[in-house]
Structure formats: C-alpha cells, structure tokens
Amino acid sequence: MDMAGSLTSGVWKPQGPPPPVPDDPGGGSGGGRGASRRATFTGLFVAMASIVMFFAAFTSALVVRRGLSNDWLPTPLPGILWLNTALLLASSAALEMGRRALRAGAREAFNRYWTGGTLLGALFLGGQYLAWQQLLGAGIYISTNPSSSFFYLLTAVHALHIAGGMAALLYVNVQALRLRLGPSKRTAVDVTAVYWHFVDVLWIYLLLLFLIWG
C-alpha cells in the first residue's frame, strides 16, 4: 500500500507480460523506486502553490482595500523586523550548509548546522512576537487601521507557516540526533529545507509588501 514496501522489497520486477510495446509513450513510473520521493516533492510544490494562492488572495484584498478607501494610514514597521529578517536568512543559509555537509558525509557537521538553523528559526518567531509587542506598545492594534489590520494578519499567518516549518525542522533534528538519518530520511531533509527557503522568500515578499503598500 505504500512505497516503503516497494523500496524495501527491492527493484521493481515486471509481472508476467512482456514490456510495453515500442510505441508506448512511456506512461507512469509504475510506483517503483523513487516514486515516493518524487511524489513527496510533487506534494510539496503543490502545497506551495496553494500557499502562494492563499497569500495572493490576502495581497489582492490589501490592494483593493487600500485603493478603495481614504482611511489608510501607513503602519510604522518595528525596527526589530530587520533583525528578524537577518535571522531567518541566516537560518536558511545554515540549513543549506548542513545539506552540503550531509552530501559530503559529515553527519556531525550536519547536526550542528541543522540545530543552528532550527534555533535561528525559533529566534525569528520570538523576534516577531517582540515586533508585535513594540507595535502594541505604540498603541497600534489590529483594529486601529486597515494597514495595521493587514500587518497583524499577514505576520500571524506567516508565523503559522513558520511554525509548521519549525515542526518539520525539529522532526529532522530529532531523527538526526538519534542517528536515524538513513537514505529514506534524506527526502525529509530535502523537503523540509525547500519548504523553509520558501517561507523565507515569502517573508521577504511580505516585508516588501509592507514597505511599498503598508
């Protein structure tokens, strides 16, 4: 029922009938070796497409809401956001270095880099919380202005996506520290890293959105 079975039971063997006729356009993979990894990546990209759509809807709402009204006041961006951005970029870089180390077989280095990336991600979340505190301290609440409404909303839903990424990072981290990073777990490493870069880019996009339209 799952691909683990076909991975462990060895190479795919044709059953009975001869191989497909020559004019066969190729067709499917047969669910053989690698199908699970490919499907996982397909799932990831498809999920990313829906996240893009999710944020695109918010963006269009922001543009329409800003264009239609005369009550829009720009929200001053808390300074700590720049630090947070740097933390997030650094965590992405750490994960990349970790993957490079893993490819070179340096498990220990991988563990260090990955743990560092995870910690930097946690710091980003903490930093976002401080940014909220700064804004609230300045008397800017979610209902103060449409601009601040969007700021709180978009940072919150982004933080949720970061939190999901954190869960994946931690999972890989625990597996790695327990020395359970066999070949089949490489997919988990790669998928998590790609997702993390994605939410990273998403944050840069949101930051630009706040700077230009906020």
Binding site: M1, D2, M3, A4, G5, L7, S36, A39, T40, G43, L44, A47, A168, Y171, V172, S184, K185, T187, A188, V191, T192, Y195
Partner: peptide, 11 residues
C-alpha cells in the same frame, strides 16, 4: 510534509 509521506506507513 515528511510526517505524512508514504514511507512511514506500515505495509
């Protein structure tokens, strides 16, 4: 993602 991938389900 990895949690739910096919590789973790018993055969």
């Amino acid at each position: 993602m990895s949690e739910t991938s096919a590789t973790h389900v018993a055969h």
